[in-house]
C-alpha cells in the first residue's frame, strides 16, 4: 500500500486527425495522496477534463503511467467515482433507486448504506422523489451519493457545480467539504472557478493550454473552514491568477 491514492506520471495524449496531430496533454506528473483534496484549474482546452477522463479509465488512449493504489488503470470502475458536469441521474428511477442503481434495495446492507448516504448528502425526505422534482444542486448531491455508496478510493469531479447558480454553488462547496471530512475519500476536482479551487483543496494545480501541461502547483495551507474574504485567501487568489497569466518556460513539469 502506497500513500498515493492516484499516481499519474509522464502522461501524454495526442489527438490525431487525418492531416495534423494535437498535443492535448504533455508529460503530466501528478499524484494524489490518500484523503487529499486536489483541484485542477486552467483555461479551456488545457486538457483538464481529458486528464480526469484518463484517470477515470473512460479514456484509455494515452501514453504514460496511470495507477490507482499501485494498480494500472485499464478501464472505468467503481473504485474511481466519477461526477459529470450534469447530474446524469436515471430519470425513471427515484432518488434511492438512483443511488442503489444496480444494487438491490431489498438487501438490508444496501438499504442501510443508501440511507446513510442520503443522510450524508442531506436528502432525507426525498428518497422517493424523481429527478425531475429535484433542483440542480440536489440532483448533483444524489449523483455524489451514487458514487460514494460504492466506496470509491478516489472521487473524480468534472466541473460538477459549473451549471449551478452562484448561491447554490457556494452551498454545494460547503456540503462537498462536509462529505469529504466525514468520508475521507480522496478528491480530484476539475474546475474553472479559482475561488472554488482555493476554498476546497489542499493543493491547486494550474494547467496551461496547447499543449496541456502542469504550470504550477500551489499548496493551500489555510485551515478549514476557509473564509473567502480573508486576506490570506485573497493572497492565494492573486497567486493562482498570476500563475494562470504567466507562461513559463517550455517543458517544465512539476514533481511532487
Amino acid at each position: 500500500m502506497t500513500a498515493e491514492a492516484l499516481e499519474i506520471s509522464q502522461l501524454s495524449k495526442t489527438f490525431r486527425t487525418a492531416d495534423k496531430a494535437t498535443h492535448v496533454l504533455d508529460n503530466v506528473q501528478l499524484s494524489l495522496k490518500k484523503q487529499e483534496f486536489v483541484s485542477i484549474i486552467g483555461p479551456s482546452g488545457c486538457g483538464k477534463s481529458t486528464l480526469l477522463k484518463i484517470a477515470a479509465g473512460l479514456d484509455v488512449d494515452y501514453e504514460g503511467l496511470v495507477q490507482l493504489d499501485g494498480i494500472d488503470v485499464s478501464g472505468p470502475s467503481k473504485e474511481k467515482g466519477f461526477i459529470f458536469q450534469e447530474h446524469r441521474l436515471f430519470p425513471w428511477a427515484t432518488v434511492e433507486k438512483n443511488i442503489a442503481a444496480d444494487l438491490s434495495l431489498k438487501n438490508p446492507e444496501v438499504r442501510q448504506k443508501v440511507d446513510e448516504m442520503i443522510e450524508l448528502v442531506r436528502l432525507q425526505g426525498f428518497e422517493k422523489a424523481y429527478p425531475k422534482q429535484l433542483s440542480g444542486g440536489m440532483a448533483q448531491r444524489v449523483a455524489i451519493a451514487r458514487a460514494l455508496v460504492r466506496n470509491p478510493q478516489v472521487l473524480l469531479l468534472d466541473e460538477p457545480f459549473g451549471a449551478l447558480d452562484a448561491f447554490t454553488r457556494n452551498h454545494m462547496q460547503e456540503s462537498l467539504l462536509d462529505i469529504w471530512r466525514q468520508n475521507k475519500t480522496s478528491m480530484l476536482l476539475v474546475t474553472h472557478d479559482i475561488d472554488e479551487a482555493i476554498f476546497l483543496s489542499n493543493r491547486v494545480v494550474v494547467m496551461d493550454a496547447r499543449p496541456g501541461r502542469i504550470k504550477a502547483i500551489i499548496p493551500v495551507d489555510l485551515p478549514y473552514p476557509r473564509n473567502r474574504v480573508s486576506a490570506s485567501f485573497q493572497q492565494l487568489r492573486t497567486q493562482v491568477l498570476s500563475a494562470l497569466d504567466h507562461v513559463e518556460e517550455e517543458g517544465n513539469s512539476y514533481e511532487i
Binding site: 472505468p76 446524469r88 442503481a101
Partner: peptide
C-alpha cells in the same frame, strides 16, 4: 449515450445495462 457512460463508471453488468438502462429508457 451519456447514461451508458454512467453504466460503465458504475460497472453495470451486461444484464443490468439492459434492465436498468436500455429497457426503461426505451419504454
Amino acid at each position: 449515450s451519456k447514461l451508458f457512460d454512467v453504466a460503465r463508471v458504475l460497472e453495470f453488468s451486461r444484464f443490468h445495462q439492459l434492465t436498468k438502462v436500455v429497457m426503461p429508457a426505451a419504454m
